[in-house]
């Protein structure tokens, strides 16, 4: 595998893993929770480091998952105590992230944990940290991590597909039927957290948020079937990753930033030209119907 291929592969795996949780979050109108979680996992990472004094992968994962779920719990608590949902997200997000930033700068300055890195990521360094596992050599650590998370996301999606579907569409009926609505909510928060932590070391929090929200929102404009929404969203996410890489290479700029830009570009295309929802297409269609009315 070449250097370029590793970067594209990593970004593609990240984008598919993110788009899976993203579809569920967007349909539940909870997209901005991913913004909070993808930042507050920093607190989980630095706490795990302070407790274990190592950058061991598993401890990092557990720390991040706990931080992500706590973020969701706190947002829920504030919200049910009467704070507006968006304000609750903003407060918990900035508060926990800020604590993470302070802890990093106080205790973890010398280790491989820094704030700028957590926001922007550094895809260009990925191919150089490799781990041999299962007899396979020379695979970057980031690829292992994100592959494991992707497999977990796919398995959970398949196992709980109809439960996720019903509890997203009609939580009241889901609860009345005995579907564990609360468990599914926190399961999704856990999935979002491990996806964010596995992704953000490689690509940074901004690309994580972009990949979680933009491709599902684009797919939402292109299909009216849930199954297809997952597929389209994954395809759009991968296209954004690949095209973003090459544009970044041409313009000699930040790779993750360019990939995030591409997710926005694809969204704009769908927003204007989607056969069912596109603004431009609707205008054209209206003009035609007006003409035919005039003739009649």
């Amino acid at each position: 595998m070449t250097y370029t291929m590793w970067i594209i592969l990593t970004a593609s795996l990240v984008s598919v893993a993110c788009s899976i949780v993203g579809v569920l979050l967007v349909l539940r109108k909870m997209a901005m929770i991913s913004d909070a979680i993808s930042h507050t996992v920093l607190l989980g990472l630095v706490s795990a480091f302070l407790i274990t004094q190592s950058l061991d992968g598993l401890a990092m994962f557990i720390g991040a998952a706990i931080a992500g779920i706590l973020t969701a719990v706190f947002i829920q608590l504030l919200n049910s105590a009467g704070v507006q949902a968006d304000a609750a997200i903003g407060i918990v997000f900035t508060f926990l992230f800020a604590i993470g930033v302070i802890l990093v700068s106080m205790f973890a300055r010398d280790v491989h944990l820094d704030v700028e890195h957590s926001i922007m990521g550094e895809l260009a360094f990925i191919p150089w940290t490799t781990v041999d596992w299962l007899g396979i050599e020379g695979v970057p650590q980031a690829v292992w991590m994100i592959s494991i998370v992707l497999v977990i996301n796919i398995i959970l999606l398949f196992v709980f597909y109809k439960e996720f579907k019903l509890s997203s569409f009609d939580p009241h009926l889901a609860a009345a039927l005995g579907i564990p609505v609360v468990f599914l909510h926190y399961l999704l928060m856990g999935m979002t957290s491990i996806t964010a932590v596995a992704s953000f070391d490689a690509v940074g929090a901004i690309l994580v948020v972009a990949m979680i929200i933009a491709p599902p929102a684009t797919a939402y404009l292109l299909t009216e079937q849930l199954g297809k929404m997952f597929v389209y969203s994954a395809i759009i996410a991968v296209l954004s990753a690949i095209s973003g890489y090459y544009f970044a290479a041409i313009l000699d700029t930040n790779i993750a930033g360019m990939m995030a830009t591409m997710t926005g570009f694809f969204f704009l295309l769908a927003f204007l030209f989607s056969p069912t929802h596109g603004v431009v297409i609707k205008k054209i269609r209206n003009r035609f119907t007006t003409y035919s009315n005039d003739e009649a």
């Binding site: 109809k162 889901a174 939402y220 009216e224």
Partner: peptide, 14 residues
Amino acid sequence: FPTNALDVVLMGKY
């Protein structure tokens, strides 16, 4: 929500 009428009815059987 991206789904059709039959799918919604099926939800009653979940």
